[in-house]
Simulated scan of single mutants.
Amino acid sequence: MAKRSPLAEKLDEVKDRIARACEKRKRDPAEVTLVAVTKTAAPEQIREILSLGIADLGESRVQQLTQRAGQLNEFVARRQIHGDAGTMPDKIRWHMIGHLQRNKVKSLLPFVHLIHSIDSLRLAEELDAQADKAGRKIPILLQVNGSEEPQKHGVAIGAAVHLAEQIDSMPGLQLTGLMTMAAHETDPVKIRQAFSRTREVFEELKWNKIGGASLRHISMGMSDDFEVAIEEGATMVRIGSTLFGGGVQDHEGLEEA
Rank of each mutant, 00 (worst) to 15 (best):
K3P: 14
S5P: 13
A8N: 10
E9G: 10
L11Q: 01
E13T: 15
D16R: 09
R17I: 03
A19F: 01
A19Q: 01
A30S: 06
A30R: 04
E31R: 10
K39H: 11
A42D: 15
A42N: 15
A42T: 13
P43R: 11
E44P: 09
Q45V: 04
Q45L: 06
R47H: 11
I49A: 00
I54N: 01
I54F: 04
L57I: 07
L65C: 06
V76H: 08
H82N: 10
G83A: 03
M88T: 04
P89T: 08
D90S: 13
H95I: 06
H99F: 12
L100G: 01
K104N: 11
K106R: 14
S107F: 14
V112K: 09
H113T: 01
H116L: 05
S117E: 11
I118N: 11
D119M: 03
S120V: 06
A124W: 03
A124L: 00
A124S: 04
A124M: 00
A124E: 00
Q130H: 12
K133A: 13
K133L: 14
A134G: 01
G146V: 09
S147H: 09
Q151R: 10
Q151H: 10
V155H: 03
V155E: 04
I157K: 05
G158I: 01
V161D: 00
L163T: 03
L163K: 02
A164K: 04
M170Y: 04
L173A: 10
L173H: 05
L175D: 09
G177H: 00
H184F: 15
E185L: 07
D187G: 12
K190S: 14
Q193V: 13
Q193H: 14
R199S: 04
R199F: 03
E200A: 04
V201S: 06
K206A: 04
A213V: 13
H217A: 02
M222F: 11
M222I: 07
S223V: 03
D224H: 15
D225W: 01
E227T: 02
I230T: 08
E231L: 07
G233M: 05
A234W: 02
I239C: 01
T242S: 12
L243H: 07
F244A: 09
G245E: 15
G246I: 03
G246W: 01
V248L: 14
Q249H: 15
H251T: 15
E252C: 12
E256I: 13
E256H: 11
